[in-house]
């Protein structure tokens, strides 16, 4: 039973990360229709920037996370401007290929600067906690709490602010939004900034628990895509729930069935679902 609880807890922690990353991706893929396959690499860069700030600039953990968040927001804007905006009006797969270029670039850049080996961000909260018999570290709890907070704020932003409403308007009808005077370019920039920044936070808080490597982004990016497709394009609650479910499936499947094949479950599931519903679980059947 204890083992089970432990796995569930790990699943929720993993899922928290997935949920935030997937929510960020669903903003750009679902709402702007940009298949940003480099989203996982934003996540990776976020972790490295925090690592750099903590180890080289000797910044405290939280200031580093905050700064990393800003750096990634900027990176998101730049990437959107350079790699994705010129692809507008072209078949979506062109943007997808462009994203492959971006991710190759980012991964090579990090490898060049920090080397291909793994690094570790010093764990700011290593103390263990005992939660009703469940032993864990403060950092792990922090991942869960931060993710929950981030998700709450993201929802608040979309539902309550003018900017959030604007993003939704563009999502629903780009031409219409342009007609009523919404600056689509600006909305695209802001959405990318938001998406990259949330990925940076998610990566930064979870990174002290694991090792960071230049290749860590690829798998996370793929999983985020899977979640977004299964959860419904542009559906933020779908992405969040999907994130937690995938985290739990991986933790339990990895713990009870096979750790080696845990990723196969997620990828196999996607192929299976797409085989039955080619446009995704909540996708509209177009004719």
């Amino acid at each position: 039973m204890d083992v089970f609880l432990q796995q569930v807890f790990n699943g929720i922690m993993l899922g928290s990360t997935y949920a935030v990353v997937a929510a960020g991706l669903t903003l750009v893929f679902g709402i702007l229709h940009v298949p940003n396959f480099a989203h996982g690499h934003f996540y990776m860069i976020g972790a490295y920037v925090t690592f750099f700030l903590v180890t080289s600039w000797k910044l405290g953990f939280w200031p580093a996370v905050l700064l990393s968040c800003l750096v990634l927001a900027l990176l998101g804007v730049v990437v959107e401007r350079l790699a994705f905006r010129p692809m507008r009006g072209q078949p979506q797969v062109n943007a997808f290929i462009s994203a492959i270029g971006v991710l190759m670039f980012l991964e090579a850049l990090v490898t060049l600067v920090w080397g291909p080996e793994g690094h570790r961000i010093p764990n700011p909260y290593p103390a263990t906690v005992n939660l009703w018999g469940l032993v864990t570290t403060q950092q792990r709890l922090l991942v869960i709490v931060t993710a929950a907070l981030l998700i709450f704020l993201l929802n608040l932003f979309i539902k309550k602010t003018l900017l959030g409403a604007t993003i939704e308007a563009v999502a629903q009808n780009r031409e219409g939004a342009m007609l009523v005077g919404i600056n689509v370019d600006r909305v695209s920039s802001i959405t990318f900034a938001l998406s990259a920044a949330t990925a940076a936070i998610a990566a930064s808080v979870v990174a002290p628990i694991f090792i960071i490597t230049p290749t860590m982004g690829a798998l996370v990016g793929m999983k985020a895509f899977i979640i977004v497709i299964l959860g419904g394009l542009g559906n933020i609650p779908g992405a969040i729930w999907g994130g937690y479910i995938l985290g739990l499936v991986e933790a339990l499947g990895g713990g009870y069935i096979s750790a080696d094949y845990k990723d196969v479950f997620a990828f196999g599931l996607l192929i299976l679902v797409l085989a039955l519903r080619p446009a995704g679980l909540f996708g509209k059947e177009s004719s």
Binding site: Q92, F96, M222, F225, L274, P278
Partner: peptide
């Protein structure tokens, strides 16, 4: 099953297959 999907979805589904082969 995979070619029932289009565009980016096909790209992702096919990538998933490629990664599965690597994991196996």
């Amino acid at each position: 099953p995979m070619l029932r999907t289009r565009g980016s979805y096909f790209a992702i589904a096919s990538l998933c297959f490629g990664v599965i082969v690597g994991i196996v």
